[in-house]
């Protein structure tokens, strides 16, 4: 089976800061991988590399068997044109810590935007699908609200619906609940739990250990730009093998 995400020896620096120093990560289709680690360990950067929002310096990164951002022909790498990168990103949904909803569009317009503009779906079909998706994230009655009129939890659920509207095969979540008030975290995690149950492949950067333990198929602990430990969530959380994992977990659990 082709892995959904296959990252081998990923390196990434910003100037002199070496953020990723040889990261390996494999996510099988239908799997939920949770990524944890201290602030600045490179979790967001890794996630952003997976949909080519950041360009990797070395290593090989494949999504669904295809190199991300590059084409390989006769052993030579060719950088993809901007339109090809955009095409690749259609199948990878991303949910941001700060939601990044389009503030000038209502909830339903946010969800319809990419299907209409990118996939050139007709408006009526896109609207019907958006209604369905908003219903699914429990926001049927908030369709016509602008993001500024929604709570953080509601905004994040719209953002998830917006990503799902492109029918992605892979969903990336970058600390989707970190910007939320504690009482709003649950509603977002519920939606994600539902997604996982339906078999969506997900990579989730999170600080929610409960969610990782319950929903995750794999748990990845990153520190200083490398994957220190990785395995079944119960194993890693219950019986960490590395000192760094132990000391991180003792602080967050």
């Amino acid at each position: 089976m082709t892995p959904m995400v296959e990252a081998l020896g990923i390196h990434k620096s910003f100037g002199a800061t070496r953020v990723l120093r040889g990261v390996d990560l494999v996510v099988q289709p239908g799997e939920v991988s949770c990524v944890i680690g201290p602030s600045g360990s490179g979790k967001s950067t890794l996630l952003r590399c997976i949909n080519h929002l950041e360009r990797i310096d070395s290593g090989r990164l494949r999504v669904d068997g295809h190199l991300v951002g590059y084409r390989e022909r006769n052993g030579k790498l060719y950088e993809m044109r901007e339109s090809e990168v955009a095409h690749q990103r259609r199948d990878i949904g991303m949910v941001f810590q700060r939601f990044n909803l389009f503030p000038h569009k209502t909830a339903i317009e946010n969800v319809m935007e990419a299907p209409v503009v990118v996939r050139r779906q007709d408006k009526a079909a896109a609207r019907a699908r958006a209604v369905e998706l908003l219903d699914r994230v429990g926001l049927a009655d908030r369709r016509d609200n602008y993001p500024a009129q929604l709570s953080g939890g509601q905004q994040q659920r719209v953002a998830i619906a917006r990503a799902l509207a492109m029918s992605p095969r892979l969903m990336l979540f970058d600390e989707p609940t970190s910007a939320l008030d504690p009482e709003l975290v649950g509603e977002v995690l519920d939606v994600m739990r539902g997604l996982a149950r339906e078999g969506m492949t997900m990579v989730v950067v999170t600080h929610e250990m409960g969610f990782a333990r319950e929903v995750g198929d794999a748990l990845v602990f990153m520190d200083e730009g490398v994957v220190v430990e990785h395995g079944a969530p119960r194993e890693v959380l219950g019986n960490p093998q590395h000192e760094r994992t132990r000391s991180f977990l003792s602080k967050v659990l």
């Binding site: 949909n51 955009a86 991303m94 941001f96 990419a114 503009v117 990503a163 492109m166």
Partner: peptide, 15 residues
Amino acid sequence: GQTEAAGALGMSRAQ
């Protein structure tokens, strides 16, 4: 973040 969100949805730079 707006540009990134649009890019992540597969929108081109012009779009």
